[in-house]
Design a protein around this nucleic acid. Structure first.
Length: 431
DNA sequence: TCTGGGGTCCTAGGACCC
DNA sequence: TCTGGGGTCCTAGGACCC
């Protein structure tokens, strides 16, 4: 059964442009947290030679800064726009298999029921109803659907859709695509492939299976089969995540243990919330810290520590306490910290909690769980951290800082508004 | 001055067992 | 000279993705 793929073009930039139509043909970039790196580029920005992942401050060195409109990342907006696109897609094609914030696969009964015209119409409807331009690829395997989508995006004459619906087209499609641009082939494999004389996806598809297995392992084989038209990549649901991570780089270096504990408490609380939202519990709480790896002139330090809970939990106080203990065990005085994070793992559904025979706090735990349910309800109505632990010291409790805008030690100088999710940010129309 | 964040899966190697 | 063999489970690190 063939697979379809809908991929939003330059997604974050496209989201910003929906509310800034004046930028429709201008070079636009969206930056990562802290306004650090370029993570989304309009076609115009790509044509200027701005690479993905380039540090924002380098734009200045390239002297293109003045011609480019930058945005700080506005994940609330992107998540909501993504939701709209996915909902519309589902209403058009039935069951969808969301893959990332800007991509979703879907099953296609047969090519007889899904013409190129139909794919073009789908793309046009999504643009019309959400404002987001998308590309549509349809092919016998997920990897080939990715290839098709790439052609849909690159070749003007295809009108945003490409079908690889017979073997002649498949052969031709893989001959004209670099092996490095294939889904599943990463940077680390490229030198080895080059040494073997493999340049295109077709070169790779023609290798002996045994050789592929030896050189590139089971994942290499999967990609090889998929390029040859044999569907092996499974469309599995990963609804419940197996690890949950919250981490940030700091706009300003952090030196005291107290400051670090505050940040780690916030990260841990955020993780615990994500955990409860997917109705799971975690047993392992890991904390990591690191100095600024770009500063050769400063002491380098990176470390991590894990605390195992006796009984898997999802309530904020317990997760925060564990994270703080882990933090305390790795804090080193005299280091300037640039980044820290909390990772929860050993995650299971919360109806299958394995209690410990040494667990003497089960009553306290169930009290905590009830308390969290109430707090979550309050916070979902009144804003994240409306109720919080004293150790968190969330955004609005921070001392006000001078410009540039700092929010919990995060730089966001080019932030757009939450046009679609916050009443105070709804766009004004002046007639 | 300024360099992102959040995931999944596989593999190799160690610990342990009989 | 020559130091079992086979299995499981766990974990850290690597590779990949967007």
């Amino acid at each position: 059964m063939p697979f379809g793929l809908v991929d939003c073009n330059n997604f974050f930039v496209s989201c910003e442009r929906v509310f800034r139509p004046d930028l429709a043909t201008k070079p636009v970039v969206v930056l990562s947290n802290n306004d650090g790196c370029v993570v989304s580029r309009s076609n115009e920005a790509k044509q200027m030679g701005i690479p993905m992942g380039m540090p924002f401050f380098r734009l200045r060195e390239f002297d293109v800064e003045k011609r480019v409109t930058p945005f700080s990342s506005n994940y609330t907006l992107y998540a909501d726009m993504s939701h709209r696109v996915m909902q519309l897609l589902a209403s058009e094609v039935g069951d969808i298999i969301p893959y990332s914030i800007d991509e979703s696969f879907f099953a296609v009964d047969s090519f007889a029921n899904f013409s190129h015209d139909r794919a073009v119409q789908l793309s046009a409807k999504i643009l019309k109803c959400t404002g987001i331009p998308v590309s549509v690829g349809v092919a016998p395997t997920m990897t080939l659907a990715k290839v098709a989508c790439r052609y849909a995006k690159k070749v003007k004459g295809y009108h945003g859709a490409c079908l690889i619906d017979n073997d002649t087209k498949r052969q031709k499609a893989i001959q004209h695509i670099d092996i490095g641009d294939v889904w599943g082939i990463g940077r680390r494999s490229l030198p080895r492939l080059k040494a073997m004389g493999i340049v295109t996806a077709a070169d790779y598809a023609q290798l002996e299976e045994l050789q592929v297995k030896r050189q590139f392992g089971i994942n290499g084989i999967r990609t090889w089969q998929e390029l040859n038209g044999i569907s092996v990549v499974k469309a599995e649901d990963h609804d419940a995540k197996q690890s949950i991570c919250t981490s940030r780089s700091f706009a300003e270096m952090v030196t005291t243990e107290e400051q670090l504990l505050t940040h780690v408490s916030n990260f841990a609380a955020q993780c615990a919330l994500k955990l409860r939202q997917q109705q799971s519990v975690a047993q392992s709480v890991m904390v990591f810290v690191s100095s600024n790896r770009f500063r050769d002139d400063m002491e380098q330090y990176a470390n991590a520590a894990t605390v195992m809970l006796d009984v898997a939990a999802s309530n904020t106080p317990e997760i925060v306490r564990a994270a703080n203990a882990a933090m305390h065990s790795i804090y080193k005085k005299g280091v300037s910290y640039k980044k820290a994070g909390v990772v929860l793992s050993s995650i299971s559904p919360n109806h299958a909690v394995q209690t410990s025979i040494f667990d003497t706090a089960s009553e306290q735990r169930s009290r905590n769980d009830r308390l969290m349910a109430v707090i979550d309800k309050i916070n979902s109505k009144n804003g994240r951290d409306a109720v919080h632990l004293a150790s968190q010291q969330p955004d609005d409790a921070q001392p006000a800082k001078e410009t540039p805008i700092f929010n919990n030690n995060l730089r966001r100088e080019h932030m757009s508004r939450c046009f679609t999710t916050n009443f105070n940010d709804i766009i004004d129309v002046h007639v």
